[in-house]
């Protein structure tokens, strides 16, 4: 399944990474090289094999429904949440105007 320039651009767009023509050309070759190599997985007979879900046998634990039980995973820390914001605005994160 060789990918072409158009596919490279589509993937870059889905991934939200702007790429130049030169980058797209370079990536086409690299990605085809890597994808061509991983395609050897198709040789493996996986009949009756379930995809791996948990690497180590373990069950999903559930949290109690308590607000701010642990400050590290609780709210009420707006200053911390906004501390690194490129464009903090009156307690909000500012982004270029979005037209829906």
């Amino acid at each position: 399944m060789a990918i072409d320039q158009a596919t490279v651009r589509k993937i870059a767009s889905l991934a939200r990474i702007a790429i130049s023509d030169a980058e797209a050309t370079a990536m086409e070759g690299e990605l085809n090289g890597i994808l061509g190599w991983v395609e050897q997985l198709g040789e493996v007979d996986v009949t009756g094999v379930e995809p791996m879900t948990a690497v180590i046998p373990n069950t999903l634990r559930l949290r109690d429904d308590v607000v701010d039980a642990d400050p590290l995973t609780g709210g009420n820390r707006r200053d911390d949440v906004l501390a690194n914001a490129p464009e903090p605005q009156h307690g909000f994160f500012g982004v270029p105007k979005v037209i829906e």
């Binding site: 429904d65 039980a69 709210g75 820390r77 911390d80 949440v81 307690g91």
Partner: peptide, 24 residues
């Protein structure tokens, strides 16, 4: 619920912006 689906921040309606936001 009192807290969010994957964090301990509160779910109450009408709070000040970004006050019910955890690092998660």
């Amino acid at each position: 619920s009192n807290a969010k689906l994957f964090s301990g921040a509160a779910t109450a309606f009408g709070a000040e912006p970004n006050t019910q936001v955890s690092l998660v």
